[in-house]
Amino acid sequence: MTEPKIALNDLAKAFGDKVVLDGVTLAVEPGESMAIIGGSGTGKSVMLKCILGLIQPDGGTIRIDGEDTTHLRGRARREVQAKFGMLFQGGALFDSLPIWRNVTFGLTRGRAMDSGRMRRLAEENLERVGLGADVLDLRPSELSGGMQKRVSLARAIAPRPQIIFFDEPTTGLDPIMADVINDLIRSLVEGLGVTAVTITHDMTSARKIAHRVAMLYQGRIIWHGPCDRLYDSRNPYVDQFVQGRADGPIQ
């Protein structure tokens, strides 16, 4: 039996009195694309940030390739982070740097080195997300929202991570651009053979990019299953959510 790529066990996190994660247990297999769905404020982002090491969980464990990474710090933490790529919701591009430095930031770790090679690498990765060399020297603020998201995607894949996280990849985009991004994510996941975890509340996107879906509600995973079972899950919470009804068990 192979080790899951990511294994969360009883993950808990509270901010003050507010319990955000209340025992999340979840496994993501290598090469799998998993979508986490759930309403706003159900702890999707917090869960992702715990895995990334940006937030320390209060309890439970996080295993990456079988290695317990829950409380890693310093160099050991950075070694695990080398396996991760992350597409942030707003793109989170560094607005003080030109596009090509943004794309190669994960390789140079912010140092000014090997400019020629880095520009070529930036160009290569931008090509993968459908952008030309003409954007290399622009600043992030000169690009549209959809283009920023693509550059951010190029930045996430440039260090060739094994696991990529997508935080609401289609939020704020028009339906056509959203579909372009969905296609890109799917082809990148297949083309690069990475494991993907996407948090979203866009059902079209979830169905398009994920093999498996898990639903987070009140800090717990209340349902998970293959993507094609999403619309006959026989779970009243999932039903209400995927059909977008105001009345139901979720208030």
Partner: peptide, 16 residues
Amino acid sequence: TMRVTEQLDAMTTLRT
């Protein structure tokens, strides 16, 4: 601004 636009988080995930 880098904090609220998640640029600081992005920097950390890029191992910086």
